[in-house]
Amino acid sequence: MRLRSFLARDERPISDVPKWVIAALALGLAAQLVVAALRPAPRASAEDLPVPPSSALIRLAALGEPVTAAKLLMLYLQSFDYRAGTRVPYRDLDYARVVTWLDRIVDLDPTAQYPLMTASRIYAEVPDPEKQRQMLDFVYRRYLEDPNRRWPWLAHAAYLAKHRLRDLPLARRYAVALEKNTTTPEAPLWVRQMEFFVLEDMNELEAAKILLGGLIASGQIKDARELAMMENRLKGLEERIEAERKRGK
């Protein structure tokens, strides 16, 4: 009844429709389903990931909707992570192309967190150090453009550099960048303390002591318990330095 009023028309009962028309409709539907079943299902495979078009071309094709284009491209790129049924292992993807795709997407929608998140939490988790480095470099490069929005992904990149790649100089580089560039109050304090932990692991105890002492003296640590913990840590560090010195003598 509602459909009839929407279509603004009078309708005859179905019994008025010739039987052969109904049969033709059923037959046509069945034939379509057979044809669709015979059609090979579209599949994404790692080798199919093409070089992305330029940002200008994507903007032109998006007809003034770069953000929408960025969202759709992200889903398109993501589709190469999966194949119907089984995943295409990330490590099979051409990472130079993946990085170019991610660059395009960030260019189109600089506020999007999705590309940085996938780079840091998904693509950089592959067991291939070279590819991990490519992805971490992308995160670092794009972090510098908008540190206060993108710090979570560089923080994770620093963690990966330290614990997975075991590349402490690289982890320190990221930690220094986080400390220098992240100014938003939304970022927790540990983000700006990462360099200290990396220095400690690098056995750069004097540098770590100076850094931690400076952090405590700056008054940035407001929480009393956190301050006490940091002071304890500083004390422990001073004891380690002293012990090292005695051992040296």
Partner: peptide, 26 residues
């Protein structure tokens, strides 16, 4: 060939649907 067959089948289906609806209209 698959494109031609698909086109023929789809045209038949849509025309049947159009005929079905057209026969119901007063």
């Amino acid at each position: 060939g698959a494109i031609v067959v698909q086109a023929a089948v789809y045209v038949a289906l849509v025309l049947a649907a159009a005929l079905f609806d057209f026969h119901r209209q007063n």
